[in-house]
């Protein structure tokens, strides 16, 4: 499609573009860290318990000193950033002082990641299939169902879908457990290989992305099928299967990347609701408990992690766009 000469040219532009984007990513992380740090210290209370009685000032000071909270706030910030940037040390979570923030996130991340990976697989598998089928059978009943699922998935919040699943499959039919994740009594063969308590969280969670993917896939397929080159290819006698694989799926890549760009960062924040409804012991619960417990190191780490993931996904989707579709111009910001 493109000549070698053009590629080198755009490689150059690409490098400059990526460099610029990385710089802005650092800027974003800096701003997020400052705002979060100062905002969270505005919240009343601290990593101590005054439920029974106000702490005697001396006792309170001892606790504050223990956590390094006795210093002026800008010093605290600089200390935190120094450790975080230079040593990759994000501190000790107040909720579990015998571990580190990094270790705690790494541990809870596993479950969230499991949910996420299964969600992505289900969303892409079913989403693309439905999208392709609907495109091939426009206005058939499958198409209508796809449209309906897409509508539902895009508009209805995941926790609402989750409640419906619970009402129907756990409360009414009693087929599936109300919640949990990898609970031993829900796993087949006593293993953690296949568990029935995966079904509802993953389905509830996947419906949104699934809808987006199905919708994108269908519309781009329809567009592609109307295009001349498909007709040409068909006229030349290429088999239907070949047409589909070569041209159409390639063109469906763009919507997939778009969908991925939306889904990946949301896997983290979105899991707050899914994990709350199904009581899954993943990272999601820490978003709320860290704030409730005034677990400053944990709050900072989570905010930075999300901001980082968002920025990174934006960057990657942009790069992938330009890679799979040279028509997308680099740095073409704004302008419709």
């Amino acid at each position: 499609m493109a000549s070698r000469h053009r590629i080198t040219n755009s490689d150059n532009a690409m490098a400059r573009y990526i460099l610029g984007r990385i710089l802005s990513l650092i800027l974003v992380l800096f701003v997020v860290s400052v705002v979060t740090f100062f905002l969270m210290h505005q919240v009343p209370g601290g990593p101590f318990d005054e439920t029974k009685a106000p702490l005697p000032p001396a006792a309170k000071e001892n606790i504050l000193r223990k956590y390094g909270l006795d210093k002026p706030i800008h010093i605290q910030y600089l200390n935190y950033m120094k450790n975080a940037v230079l040593h990759f040390d994000f501190g000790i979570p107040y909720q579990q002082p015998t571990t580190t923030v990094t270790a705690l996130i790494a541990k809870s991340w596993k479950v969230t990641a499991q949910v996420g990976v299964m969600t992505v697989l289900l969303a892409f598998g079913v989403g693309i299939t439905l999208g392709i089928y609907a495109a091939y059978h426009q206005n058939s009943w499958i198409d209508n169902i796809t449209t309906f699922i897409a509508m539902l998935g895009i508009t209805v919040p995941s926790f609402v879908v989750a409640m419906w699943l619970i009402l129907f499959f756990a409360v009414r039919l009693k087929w599936l457990p109300m919640g949990g994740w990898n609970a031993s009594d829900s796993c087949l063969l006593g293993s953690k290989f296949v568990c029935t308590d995966w079904i509802m969280p993953v389905v509830a969670y996947a419906l949104g992305p699934l809808a987006i993917i199905a919708r994108y896939t269908r519309s781009s397929m329809v567009d592609v099928m109307r295009q001349d080159f498909t007709r040409t290819a068909r006229a030349k006698g290429l088999g239907n299967r070949a047409i589909m694989l070569r041209h159409i799926l390639r063109n469906a890549l763009i919507p997939m990347v778009t969908a991925l760009g939306v889904i990946i960062p949301n896997l983290l924040t979105g899991s707050i609701f899914i994990e709350a409804v199904f009581r899954i012991n993943g990272l999601g619960k820490f978003f709320v408990t860290s704030i409730f417990n005034r677990d400053y190191p944990m709050i900072m780490a989570l905010f930075l992690l999300i901001a980082f993931l968002w920025s990174l996904t934006y960057l990657f989707t942009d790069i992938i766009y330009t890679w799979i579709d040279p028509r997308v111009r680099l740095g073409a910001e704004g302008g419709a």
């Binding site: 705002v35 924040t269 978003f287 709320v288 709050i299 989570l302 905010f303 901001a307 968002w310």
Partner: peptide, 11 residues
């Protein structure tokens, strides 16, 4: 855009 909106709302 990169701000975690939901978490900020909670905070």
């Amino acid at each position: 855009t990169a701000f975690p909106g939901l978490m900020f709302s909670i905070l």
